[in-house]
Each structure stands twice: as C-alpha cells, then as structure tokens.
Amino acid sequence: MSRISSSLGKDLIGLEPLSAEQIRGILDTAEPFKEISERRIKKVPVLRGKTIVNLFMEPSTRTRISFEFAEKRLSADTVNISASGSSVVKGETLVDTARNLEAMRIDMVVIRHGASGAARFLAERIPSNVINAGDGSHEHPTQALLDLLTIRDHRKRIEGLRVCIVGDILHSRVARSNIFGLLKLGAQVGVCGPRTLVPAGIEALGVERFRRIEEAIEWADVLNVLRLQLERMRTGYVPSLREYNRVFGVTTPRLERAPRDILVLHPGPMNRGVEIDSDVADGPQSVILQQVTNGVAVRMAVLYLLAGGAPERAEAAKTGGLG
C-alpha cells in the first residue's frame, strides 16, 4: 500500500515549515475524505476513542464548526471551549488551561487564538497534537489548504497559476498561509490592496504587488478576496467602506473586463457590497461554498494524518511491513 512519504510530525502550525510534498500529501489525502460527507452515514471509525479539544479563544463559527464536523465524521470525541465560557476569564494562562486538559487525557488540541505564535507556544509545551486554527496574524493553515484544494479541483493544477490575494494583506493570517502554500506548489502569487493594508517590502517574499484591482484582474487566473475587518475602518486603515468598494471591490463590471475566466474565492464571512459584490459572490465564477465543503475534507485529512502513532513508532513500523 502506498504511504504518505513524508509525515507531518506532531503538529500543524503553519504552511511555512512544510515542504511542497507534505502539502500535496495533505491535498491528496483530502480527496477520498470528500466522499465520506456524501454518504448516508457520514462517519468512519478511524479516530474512534480519540479525544479532541477545540480551544477557541477568539470568536469563530465557520472554522470551529468545520473542525467539529471533521472530527465527528472521523468518530472522535470532541469538547469545545471558548474564551468566554472558560477559566481564561478568571485569569488562567494558556499553558495552564492546556495542562489541565492534558490531565484529563486528551489527544489533540485545535487552537484558535488572537496572539501570533500561540499555536507553536502550546505545541512545544504539551505532548498532544496541536492544530493551528488561526493564530493572530501569523497563519491559518487549514484555510489555505482548503483554498488550494478548491483551486486544484477547478483548475486541475496549482503550478503555473496566477493567484491574486485581494484586501487586507497586512493583518491576514489567511493571506500569509496562502502565500506560503501557493509559492511552494509553484503558483505565481500577487497581492492587491490599499497601501495601508499591504506590508512594505512584501515583494521580498516573491509575490507581485498590484496597486489597482483592475491590474490584478487583468493578470490573475484566480482571485482570493479577503474579508475586510470592519474595525480596520475605525482604526484609520481605510477611509470608508464605500470608498473601499469603489476602489478595491470585486464587481461584475470589473470581472467582465478580465481577459480570461477568473475563479473567485473568499474565506468568509463576506461583507457583501464591500470587498465583493453580491452578484459576484453568487455568480458562476464563485467557488465560495465549495471552499466550505472542501474545508471539512481538508480538516479530516489533517486530523487523520496527525493522529495515531508517534513518529518514532512510525519509523519502527515502517520496517515491519504490514499486510
């Protein structure tokens, strides 16, 4: 039986440390998991007896529910903890929270946290597998993986494609994870957004910078339109939502002038009429709902790959050979 040649190790913190082969391994593993969600009984026993804690210290609906579906469809037992309902409000530190959970014999933690680096911090301190579900403005690896899977579904490849990420690049963990993943898989990456929301010197990462959305659309095969965090307006990064839509909004008239058929992604939740117009979001070029469907499959694949034997046991088993 063929195997994933390079395993992921204990944790998934980001796409930056992964190799192209590891990323492809996750995407390939996600393929068969898609079918499980189409079954009448949407459940396989592969994580039976595993306990997973979803530690969400920042509000999230879609990511948390997607992880929860993925966990339940693999038969894991899950517990959800959110900041408001936990002892965090009583002043407990992240490591103390995690150690207390470990004392109850858990196997995996899926963490969403407002601080960049929180996932790695936790992963280095507890023996359980840790999956980063978004940490500050650092990385959101499973979102980028589902974006990659959706692009690959529609364009049959990633290599050589021109993908432009539009919006708030500066604060976006989704943008960072996407840039790492896309570049590793051989795509050309562009970014486009207001000068205040694109980090200076981003070209050093190997991405192309577009100052006008029209140029980005002219260039791109795929647009990944990021959500404009509304608090960015209050803190002065953009003058107004209407202004943002007028200058950077992905609209039908703009897409109609594109030289080729563009695929439109959005990680959600959308601000209709701000970064993306309703008729684009619901139009034929949009694959936004397929992203959500693929999100469950990608997360099942990650859970599956991280679960199970410790790496050293895995090494021992490799030479054993199982029939």
């Binding site: 063929s2 195997r3 390079s6 068969p32 026993p45 599956y304 034997g309 895995a314």
Partner: peptide
C-alpha cells in the same frame, strides 16, 4: 471498497497509508 479507515492497526502503522476512495 477502500478499507484504510476501517483498519484495526491504523494507529500502529504510520506513516499514514494513503486513503483510497470507496465507490
């Protein structure tokens, strides 16, 4: 049928076998 996800030795096998599709 791809029985990978139903194996009783999955947690001991690692690195994870590639899962095939059941149809």
């Amino acid at each position: 049928l791809d029985i990978t996800l139903y194996r009783d030795d999955l947690m001991e096998v690692g690195p994870r076998p590639l899962v095939g599709e059941s149809s």
